[in-house]
Design a protein around this nucleic acid. Structure first.
Lengths: 336, 336
DNA sequence: TTGTACGCGTTATCAG
DNA sequence: CTGATAACGCGTACAA
């Protein structure tokens, strides 16, 4: 690691003071044109880059927003993150991503790590987490938003959609088609408010018709292909077999379809399957997956804008709720 | 953003000097046990966290490794990245990820941005890039590794596999099965050495049998589902139709299978399809995709270890080449 | 084992 | 429009 040119080197090389060089860098409007050009020439010639630590120490800003997402292994959060990053980059802000692997303790550590790096704001997925994390954010006065979830009386700024209502709508559709032997592969609800809300939505729809989700027809599974496959295998072994399997997300649904194929059954003729999230994968399955489209890009974009406003000192920024769409692709049909 | 407690606050609260607190933080061995405990108590009580900028300025280290990957939208780089992150985290090092969207100019900017943040090392995908970027890394003495590619006389430390040989092996299999009307959907080769190497490998296999890839049977496409679909549609419209389509990666292959289905044809009866990379998606397609498995995790793990050693001052760290496996899943069969 | 004091590179204040 | 100069928080020689 070689020594880098510093502000002082640039100042010396262009015959001005360090203050002027700093001004050229940050607020070039207040420097005479020709001075400015001389400085810029020196900067280019020396290959100078501002020292992040120095800047951070002096200004106490990093122009960096952090995000802790559960995983990058599947594409669930990728699209929203991409949008978030683009929107922030346009404002000269960098996005720092950390992953928790759906582990609350690890999420808490990652939040701490990001705070330690001096981020200016934070994006969190869902609202179920240790109160201590919220307390930490409050103490530090750290601007943050919660995405992928929304409820009326949420105490934080949340930018998302109503998981429960969306799941209820989906279950209503399943019920309308005449399914009665309904099973669900839910995400792990412990520590995951989105998974819990989706399960609650399905239960609600069934309850509205005097039905209940049989305990044996509910399996909680990690959001992976393998877990989805195993869960579905268990459900298919029941007698009588469910006619429809509602899955907590598209990855679980893909796993379920794999298990169904292995069992020598066909979707949707023998079993209907539904997903949730509408990731790219959904349209690639055979048959293409009936699922719930969620506002990936809108959430990313809005989170960026809200955080930028918070960073600018604006407060009282309110939550935002977006709608979801049921995307009918054929993996759900009437039973029998 | 509230003012944070500083080293000095902790020192005052525990009745020692800032130097001692600093020692407790970094090298607690050299502090008397009870002093140490008093300081740690104060740290906990005040909720102190070291200031990243201050630390960076004083020590000129960040315990951070950067990585610039083309995209997070599909899962291609996710698995390797996950492993990289875990391996680094175990050594107390944070991973900073930036994306280039397969755009060389954007990659150059991201490299610059990461350097500006004072990373201790860098992971780059592939070796095709602006000489200026390499020059910058050299000038700064920045340790870096190139992954996802390997060739014998590579001037950088590269940790990957032989894309050309793997593609040649795959094409050999296609040819062995009797295919002669072979088409290829290649990734954009300009500025992407992996895509170029894969194309070269296919050409090589054909040339070895006195065949050539007809110009009309080669389409370059961005690594997206949509682009793969469009490219395949073009190829299917040719007369005579190709009997096999070799795709530059699994995402392109998924797109191709979509187009084939839309055209009312079936894989592999009417057209065989092959992928590359073996991402999770490959086993979900119907039929499951015959593809080349690449050493995702091994690359991530090795990159981490090598960079950690470089950071420790070790030099002369040599490249590593891993093997690939042809995974036969059924989307490739002898021609009709 | 502990404390003092300086320097790291930048921004911001204030004076000119 | 520009220059001096004082912070900013931490690590580390050096001294005790």
């Amino acid at each position: 690691m070689k020594p880098q040119p510093t502000l002082e080197d640039v100042a010396r090389a262009s015959g001005v003071s360090t203050a002027t060089v700093s001004r050229v860098l940050n607020d070039s409007a207040r420097v005479r044109r020709e001075t400015c050009e001389r400085v810029e020439a020196a900067i280019a010639r020396l290959g100078y880059t501002p020292h992040f630590g120095g800047r951070m120490l002096a200004s106490n800003r990093t122009d960096t927003i952090g995000a802790v997402i559960p995983t990058m292994e599947n594409a669930i959060f990728a699209r929203g993150l991409q949008t978030l990053e683009e929107e922030l980059a346009a404002a000269g802000v960098t996005l720092l991503v950390a992953t928790s692997n759906y582990d609350p303790a690890r999420e808490a550590r990652q939040i701490r790590a990001l705070l330690g790096r001096g981020i200016d704001g934070l994006v969190l997925i869902g609202e179920a987490r240790d109160p201590e994390s919220y307390e930490l954010l409050r103490r530090r006065g750290m601007p943050f938003v919660v995405v992928w979830t929304w409820r009326a009386d949420c105490p934080w700024t949340c930018i998302g959609f109503d998981n429960r209502a969306a799941a209820r709508g989906l279950a209503d559709r399943v019920l309308d088609l005449g399914h009665r032997r309904i099973a669900m592969i839910s995400g792990i609800t412990l520590g995951n408010d989105r998974a819990a809300a989706r399960l609650a939505g399905v239960r609600e729809a069934m309850a509205a018709r005097g039905l209940a989700l049989d305990a044996g027809n509910l399996v909680e599974a990690a959001y992976t292909l393998e877990a989805g496959r195993e869960a579905a295998a268990r459900l298919l072994a029941r007698a009588p077999r469910p006619t429809a399997i509602i899955c907590g997300n598209d990855v679980l649904a893909a796993g379920a379809m794999l298990a169904i194929r292995v069992a020598g059954l066909r979707v949707p003729r023998d079993v209907s399957v539904t997903g949730f999230d509408d990731i790219e994968l959904a349209q690639l399955l055979d048959p293409p997956l009936t699922t719930v489209r969620v506002p990936h890009r809108l959430m990313g974009q809005t989170a960026a804008r809200v955080l930028l406003r918070m960073r600018a000192g604006e407060d009282g920024v309110e939550s935002a709720m977006f709608g979801t769409t049921l995307v009918d692709r054929g993996s759900l049909q009437p039973p029998g």
